[in-house]
């Protein structure tokens, strides 16, 4: 079910940039940074562009066992859980050309879909009234309770 869904960025506070095909995504509200494995980058580009993950799965999995449906599904679920994407009600997708191009990249991926979360700074954004200055951050951070 999740594979056939279409998604959009969860809000204006989720911003993403590509660096030579590798994405860095930040949740501006909570200060979490995200990056992906090579196949994760392709899937991120697809789902954040309005494609469904199913549209990428014309990949010949016998040639690339890293891309098991269960792995792709688990990856998309992690994107949802991280609050980076939300399901769209409409069903309009991205252009077919984009799917073809991404499918080819996915076929050549060397890593299974994975997401890295960098949230060391997350507490800075939730600087509630109980916080302290901590070296080396040098900025108010939440004091452990």
């Amino acid at each position: 079910m999740i594979l056939s869904s279409r998604f959009a960025l969860a809000s204006d506070n989720i911003v993403s940039e590509s660096f030579d095909g590798e994405f860095v995504v930040v949740d501006l509200t909570f200060g979490k940074y995200f990056s992906f494995s090579d196949s994760g980058n392709v899937i991120w580009q697809a789902v954040s562009s309005g494609l469904s993950a199913a549209e990428l799965l014309g990949v010949d999995q016998s040639k690339n066992p890293l891309l098991a449906v269960s792995e792709v599904e688990a990856f998309v679920l992690r994107l949802l859980e991280a609050g980076l994407i939300v399901e769209r009600a409409d069903t309009e997708g991205a252009a077919d050309g984009l799917a073809d191009s991404l499918r080819e990249q996915l076929q050549n991926a060397a890593e299974k879909p994975d997401i890295q979360v960098f949230d060391d700074l997350a507490d800075l954004f939730l600087a509630d009234p109980i916080h302290d200055v901590e070296e080396p951050a040098g900025w108010p951070v939440v004091r452990p309770t």
Binding site: E17, F19, V24, F118
Partner: peptide, 9 residues
């Protein structure tokens, strides 16, 4: 990507 993660946060 790694440089951006060092610079941006």
């Amino acid at each position: 990507r790694a440089a951006m993660l060092a610079l941006a946060p």
